[in-house]
Amino acid sequence: MFIIALTLFGLLLGSFISMLSWRLPRIMELDGREQLKAISLGGSKCPQCQTNIPWTRLIPLFSWLASKGQCHACHTPISVRYPLIEFTSALLVFISFYLLGNTLEAWLTALFALWLLTISIIDFEHKLILDNLSLPLLWIGLLINSFGVFASPQDAILGAAVGYLSLWTIYQIHHLLTGRHGMGFGDFKLTAALGAWLGIMALPQVIIIAAVSSLLIALLLILFKKQAWQQEMAFGPFLALGGLASLVLSQ
């Protein structure tokens, strides 16, 4: 019952993540106080007809299913991104507590997973990893590992430094050889955050999982003619996958 209750709470968090990942990239030009107002004020509206959506139609996942994925006012289809994010959030919370029980590690793993989910959605949709998500994740990782939760303090500090420098070095070599930008600076900061959480010894596994999974997905997209060879693809979601897989496998 405890895990079921937390899973339902994960649905609510997924609803918040879907809202945050939609609004945050669109308000980055505002200052900090205005950003908080833009995120916290204003109810949900249909993007087509701008009709306010009542709270009875904002129940995560179930409202979308009950309305058959349509706006109650204009019957315009509502993007499947919302139930997918809510379901994924609930699944991540369920996995965290199912594997680790009601422990500090489970709570932190769920936080880590949901934070990475938010970063991944924004990077997938906008090709952008925001500093105000990746940098707090880095500092939280260093803070919790100052108590040795997932790695020793020394390994966490080295993980953050080497995580940043490893992708920065790959970027510089790629740019020197090709004259093109192979990845963004947000990827460096995200890898530093993963190193802060997992420690330096987990970084090779994180990068290998990210590289292999991104290559496989890219090949499949090219094979099915969904993407061109030279088309840019977000790397953040694959780093997030590598980081989350490494954390779960280490428990």
Rank of each mutant, 00 (worst) to 15 (best):
residue 207 I to K: 02
residue 167 L to F: 14
residue 175 H to R: 15
residue 101 G to L: 05
residue 154 Q to N: 13
residue 215 L to M: 12
residue 236 G to P: 10
residue 151 A to E: 10
residue 158 L to A: 06
residue 39 I to W: 14
residue 26 R to V: 01
residue 151 A to H: 13
residue 129 I to Y: 01
residue 78 I to G: 06
residue 158 L to C: 03
residue 98 Y to R: 12
residue 176 L to A: 13
residue 133 L to E: 05
residue 126 H to C: 07
residue 250 S to H: 15
residue 2 F to T: 14
residue 106 A to T: 05
residue 31 D to R: 06
residue 15 S to D: 06
residue 7 T to A: 13
residue 30 L to N: 08
residue 106 A to R: 05
residue 151 A to N: 05
residue 9 F to L: 12
residue 93 V to I: 15
residue 198 L to R: 10
residue 145 N to D: 13
residue 68 K to W: 11
residue 90 A to K: 12
residue 212 V to C: 03
residue 120 S to L: 02
residue 245 A to E: 05
residue 166 S to Q: 05
residue 223 L to Q: 11
residue 54 P to Q: 04
residue 175 H to C: 12
residue 27 I to K: 15
residue 184 G to H: 10
residue 147 F to C: 01
residue 212 V to F: 09
residue 13 L to C: 06
residue 105 E to H: 11
residue 67 S to C: 03
residue 124 F to C: 12
residue 48 Q to I: 00
residue 164 Y to C: 05
residue 6 L to N: 10
residue 167 L to T: 05
residue 50 Q to T: 00
residue 89 S to D: 01
residue 33 R to H: 11
residue 138 L to F: 03
residue 104 L to P: 04
residue 163 G to H: 08
residue 104 L to Q: 15
residue 28 M to C: 01
residue 44 S to R: 00
residue 240 A to C: 13
residue 26 R to S: 00
residue 17 I to G: 01
residue 5 A to E: 06
residue 247 L to V: 04
residue 235 F to V: 09
residue 236 G to N: 11
residue 224 F to Y: 08
residue 57 R to K: 13
residue 28 M to H: 04
residue 165 L to C: 10
residue 250 S to F: 11
residue 227 Q to D: 02
residue 249 L to M: 11
residue 167 L to V: 10
residue 22 W to Q: 05
residue 119 I to R: 07
residue 85 I to Q: 02
residue 182 G to Q: 12
residue 50 Q to M: 02
residue 111 L to D: 03
residue 134 S to W: 01
residue 188 F to M: 09
residue 54 P to V: 01
residue 153 P to V: 04
residue 23 R to H: 02
residue 84 L to Q: 11
residue 56 T to W: 08
residue 67 S to D: 06
residue 1 M to T: 11
residue 137 L to W: 06
residue 61 L to F: 15
residue 141 G to H: 08
